[in-house]
Amino acid sequence: MKTQEELTEIVRDHFSDMGEAATLYVQVYESSLESLVGGVIFEDGRHYTFVYENEDLVYE
């Protein structure tokens, strides 16, 4: 099982292909040891929320 830090790095790496991230945040109260819930805000103003669970990243 991966730590939240490892899950955060996986998510950060995925979003790095989409541009320069200004902020990546984790909603600790919705996350667990198995999943990471949060969002990313890019330098150009785009904002996505995400759920990373079971090696699957879903974002909108």
Rank of each mutant, 00 (worst) to 15 (best):
K2A: 04
Y59Q: 02
S35M: 15
T3D: 03
F15L: 04
E30I: 14
F42E: 00
R46W: 07
Y52I: 06
E53V: 12
V40K: 01
T49V: 10
E30W: 13
T8K: 08
Y25R: 04
H47Q: 05
V37T: 09
V58E: 05
G19R: 05
M1H: 11
R46S: 06
T3Q: 03
T3V: 05
L57Y: 04
E55F: 11
E6Q: 10
V37P: 00
E43A: 13
D44K: 02
R12T: 04
M18R: 06
E6V: 06
V11I: 10
Q4K: 10
D17I: 14
Y25A: 03
N54A: 07
E20F: 14
M1Q: 09
L36K: 00
F42H: 00
E55K: 11
Y59D: 02
V58P: 02
L36E: 00
Y59R: 02
A22P: 10
S35A: 08
S35E: 03
V28S: 12
V28D: 05
A21E: 07
Y25K: 03
Q27Y: 15
V58F: 10
E34S: 13
V58D: 04
M1D: 04
A22K: 13
S32C: 12
E55M: 10
F50S: 00
E9W: 09
H14W: 14
D44L: 09
S32Y: 08
E9A: 13
E53W: 12
E30G: 06
E34W: 09
L24R: 01
V28K: 10
S32N: 08
V51S: 07
D44R: 04
E9R: 14
E5K: 09
T23G: 03
Y29C: 12
E9N: 11
G45V: 06
F15V: 02
F50E: 00
G19M: 07
E43P: 12
H14P: 02
K2C: 14
I10T: 04
M18Q: 05
T49C: 14
L24P: 01
H14M: 14
M1F: 12
T8A: 10
E43I: 11
S32D: 08
I41N: 01
R46N: 01
V58R: 13
D13L: 15
E30L: 13
T3N: 05
S35W: 11
S35V: 14
Y29H: 05
Y25W: 07
L36P: 00
Y52R: 01
H47L: 07
V28H: 12
Q27A: 10
Y48H: 00
S32H: 10
L33A: 10
A21D: 08
S31E: 10
S31H: 07
V37D: 00
H14C: 15
H14T: 06
L33E: 07
V40P: 01
Q27W: 14
M18E: 04
V26L: 05
E6N: 05
V26A: 01
V11F: 06
A22H: 11
T23S: 08
Y59N: 02
H47D: 00
V40A: 03
E6M: 09
T23C: 15
E34G: 15
N54I: 08
V11Y: 03
S35D: 02
T8D: 04
F15W: 05
D13C: 15
D13V: 14
D44F: 13
E60C: 15
L7V: 04
G45W: 08
E53R: 11
E60G: 06
D13G: 13
H14D: 03
F42T: 02
A22F: 15
G38A: 07
A21R: 10
Y59K: 01
F42C: 08
A21I: 15
Q4P: 06
Q27T: 15
G45T: 02
L57R: 02
Q4N: 05
